[in-house]
C-alpha cells in the first residue's frame, strides 16, 4: 500500500502533467517510494501501477532502467560515489577504498546494521567538485578528503 504521504506527493506531481498522461508521474512516484522505504519492491511497483493506471510491466521497465532506484534494500544512508572520469582523475577510487575500509563493505553492499549502503554512480554533473558522493540521492558532498568523509560519516551515524 502506498502511504498517504506518498499519494499526496504523487498527486502534486500529477498536477504538472496533462490529465490523460498520468504515467508521466511514474518516475516521481517511484522516487517517493524509495524516499520513504529506502528501496522499491515489486509490490510497491504494483501499487504505483495501480495508482497511475499503468501496466505493471511498464512500471517495472522504468524502475529497472533508471539506475538511481534501489531494487533491493539499501542502507539508511546510501552513499553513491561517482567514479567517472573527472572524479577518477581526482581520486574517486581512493574515496571508494576509504569508504569500503571504514564501513567494511564494498560497492552494492549494506552494512550489517543496515545503516550504510554503498553504490557506484555515473556522472552526477558536478565534476568541478570531484571527488564526490551523494547521500540517499539527495545531498551531494564534493571535494571529498578522508577528513571530510570522516566528518560526514560521523554526522550520519548520529542520525
Amino acid at each position: 500500500m502506498l502511504s498517504d504521504q506518498i499519494k499526496t506527493r504523487i498527486d502534486r506531481e500529477l498536477a504538472k502533467y496533462p490529465a490523460d498522461q498520468k504515467q508521466s508521474a511514474v518516475m516521481a512516484a517511484l522516487r517517493f517510494v524509495q524516499d520513504e522505504k529506502g528501496w522499491i519492491s515489486n509490490d510497491d511497483m504494483e501499487d504505483v501501477a495501480g495508482y497511475l493506471g499503468m501496466p505493471h510491466m511498464a512500471v517495472y521497465e522504468v524502475a529497472t532502467f533508471y539506475h538511481m532506484y534501489n531494487l533491493k534494500p539499501m542502507g539508511k544512508h546510501t552513499l553513491t560515489v561517482c567514479t567517472n572520469i573527472s572524479c577518477m582523475l581526482c581520486g574517486s577510487s581512493e574515496v571508494v577504498d576509504y569508504l569500503g575500509k571504514k564501513l567494511g563493505i564494498g560497492l552494492g553492499e549494506v552494512t550489517a546494521d543496515g545503516k550504510f549502503g554503498l553504490r557506484e554512480g555515473e556522472c552526477f554533473g558536478a565534476c568541478v567538485d570531484a571527488p564526490m558522493f551523494t547521500i540517499n540521492n539527495k545531498r551531494l558532498c564534493g571535494k571529498l578528503t578522508n577528513a571530510k568523509i570522516d566528518e560526514i560519516l560521523a554526522e550520519l551515524d548520529k542520525q
Partner: peptide, 11 residues
C-alpha cells in the same frame, strides 16, 4: 539533464 562527464555548467 546534464550528465555528460566533465559537464556541470547548467547546474
Amino acid at each position: 539533464d546534464e550528465g555528460e562527464p566533465g559537464t556541470c555548467k547548467d547546474r
